[in-house]
Amino acid sequence: MDLSHRIDEAKRRVFMTIRDGATGPAVVRYIAGLAAERPELAGWDWVQDVRESSGEVDNADIQAAADIFGRTGPCWTVFVSHDPNLRLWCRVMDALFDGRRHLAAATPEAAAAMLESLRAETSLAVA
């Protein structure tokens, strides 16, 4: 399968793997299905592993995903990728998503560590 996910209930985190055969519209449909089944996932942190993806996503796909998520936050999506330019796309996505920020990491472990750090900072700011 080109798309898969697992959910970490305790950390309120969705891990999604997007492989080479997945198109942008297919990814959007997949996310829409998850959000329809469990609307609270839109406010959780997401890790999207796109290392095996061709990156065939356009602006319309990104806007459609932003519309699915709606107003959330503070929450993050971390893309696991070896593409050094993905960080620039993350900035564009930040402008399209209301309350969700986007980052890039080289490994799933680095993505998880990044989210742990961000969540710790957010907890300290609230306390």
Rank of each mutant, 00 (worst) to 15 (best):
C75N: 15
L88V: 13
I31P: 01
E37F: 12
D98H: 07
A22E: 05
V92Y: 12
Y30F: 14
S117T: 12
I31C: 11
T77H: 01
P74I: 03
H5W: 13
P74D: 02
D94M: 05
R19I: 14
P84C: 10
D83M: 02
R19K: 15
Q63A: 04
A26M: 14
A120P: 04
M93V: 04
Y30S: 00
G55F: 00
R38S: 08
I62Y: 09
D83G: 01
G70N: 06
D49M: 06
G43I: 09
L118I: 01
E9K: 03
V126R: 15
T77L: 02
M93K: 14
D20V: 15
G70V: 03
R38K: 13
V92P: 01
D49V: 09
A106G: 03
T77N: 07
T77Y: 00
F79I: 02
S123P: 01
P84H: 08
L3N: 04
N85A: 12
E109M: 11
T122Y: 07
G70Q: 06
D61C: 05
V28H: 09
A65S: 13
H5F: 15
F69S: 01
A35Q: 10
A120K: 08
W76S: 09
R51L: 03
F79Q: 01
Q48S: 10
R119C: 05
D67L: 06
E116A: 14
R87G: 10
E109I: 11
R101Q: 06
V92K: 11
H102T: 03
P25D: 00
S4Y: 12
V27G: 00
D8Y: 05
H102Y: 13
V126M: 11
H5M: 11
R13M: 12
I68W: 11
G24M: 08
V28N: 07
L41C: 03
Y30V: 01
V126Q: 13
V50T: 08
R19W: 14
D2T: 09
E40Q: 14
R12W: 08
D83R: 04
T17E: 11
D49Q: 03
M1Y: 14
W44A: 10
A110H: 08
G55P: 02
G55R: 00
E9W: 02
H82R: 14
D61T: 02
E9I: 04
H102R: 03
W76C: 09
D61A: 03
V50E: 01
D61E: 04
E109T: 13
A112W: 12
A125T: 04
W89Y: 06
A42T: 15
L103T: 00
D67K: 12
T107S: 07
S117Y: 05
W46C: 04
L34G: 00
E9D: 12
D94T: 04
V78Q: 07
A66N: 07
M16W: 11
G55W: 02
A26P: 07
A125D: 02
D58T: 03
D58W: 03
K11R: 15
S4I: 13
I31M: 13
G24C: 06
W44I: 10
R38M: 06
Q48C: 10
D98A: 10
R91V: 11
L3H: 05
A120D: 12
A36F: 10
P84Q: 05
T72H: 02
A35N: 09
V57H: 09
S123R: 15
L115S: 03
T77D: 03
